[in-house]
Amino acid sequence: MSRRLAEGISLDEPKPHPAATDAVVAYGANLGDRAATIAAALEELTRVPLVEAVLASQPVESVAVTLEGEDASAPAYLNGVAIVTTRLAPTVLLAYLHAIEARHGRERRERWGSRTLDLDLIAFGDVRSDTPTLQLPHPRAAEREFVLAPWLSVDPDAVLSGVGRVDEALARLRSDA
């Protein structure tokens, strides 16, 4: 016979796992051995608990973007996107992303400064969040060709919540350039 708590939760039956959600993680690096760091970080991401799959784009090289705009004199970035299928909560996934960055020497000294590794949570299904620690979707994702183009390469039907189809957002971005 199953024991039950006052709230009606069985102590003998397993709790259902949350449904898996596809999260979009943008990755980038412009210091050190960029390709090796990115490859190692993506491999670590596959070993995060409750991550079921990671589908990564090929990295693309891009000009560094600083607070003042593009900076061709700064080391170039390798950027890409990974679709991460997970049962983690978005805040927990973000904490794992920050831990992976730290293991690869990421220091947060200046906003938009050069870095050994950058892992940004761009989208988490249709979740919308606007807190100091988590903004979803990422507020500048639709402004970044180095996010949108790699994203389309792994998900041609991608949709960015609040923006629309990623292919259309990329076309608008390119026509405004």
Score class of each variant (00 low, 15 high):
Arg140Asn: 05
Leu88Tyr: 04
Pro132Phe: 08
Arg4Lys: 10
Pro156Glu: 13
Gln135Thr: 15
Arg103Gln: 12
Glu7Asp: 15
Glu110Trp: 00
Val92Gly: 04
Leu42Tyr: 08
Leu148Glu: 10
Ala82Trp: 08
Leu67Glu: 12
Thr86Val: 04
Pro16Trp: 02
Arg4Leu: 15
Ala141Ser: 09
Leu88Gly: 08
Thr66Gly: 13
Arg34Val: 02
Glu44Lys: 11
Ala171Trp: 07
Gln58Arg: 15
Asn30Glu: 10
Val147Ala: 01
Ala149Glu: 15
Thr116Pro: 12
Phe124Asp: 04
Ser153Arg: 14
Ala6Ile: 14
Trp112Lys: 00
Glu143Thr: 03
Pro90Asn: 08
Leu45Asp: 03
Trp112His: 01
Gly113Ile: 05
Leu31Ser: 03
Ser161Asn: 05
Pro137Ile: 06
Asp157Gly: 13
Pro75Val: 02
Arg174Tyr: 05
Asp155Val: 02
Ser57Thr: 11
Leu119Thr: 00
Arg106Val: 05
Thr91Gly: 14
Ala82Tyr: 11
Gly80Pro: 09
Pro14Phe: 05
Leu50His: 14
Leu121Arg: 10
Leu93Glu: 09
Val163Glu: 13
Glu52Met: 10
Val127Asn: 03
Leu55Pro: 00
Leu134Gln: 08
Val48Leu: 13
Pro14Val: 11
Val24Met: 09
Ser114Gln: 10
Leu11Gln: 11
Pro18Gln: 05
Glu7Lys: 03
Phe146Met: 07
Asn30Trp: 04
Val48Ala: 13
Ala23Glu: 09
Thr133Val: 09
Glu145Ser: 10
Trp112Ile: 00
Asp130Val: 08
Ser73Asp: 14
Arg4Met: 14
Ala177Cys: 04
Ser161Val: 15
Ser129Thr: 03
Ala95Gly: 15
Leu78Val: 09
Ser73Thr: 14
Ala74Met: 05
Asn79Ser: 09
Glu145Trp: 03
Ala76Gly: 04
Asp12Cys: 06
His17Thr: 10
Val127Cys: 12
His17Ala: 15
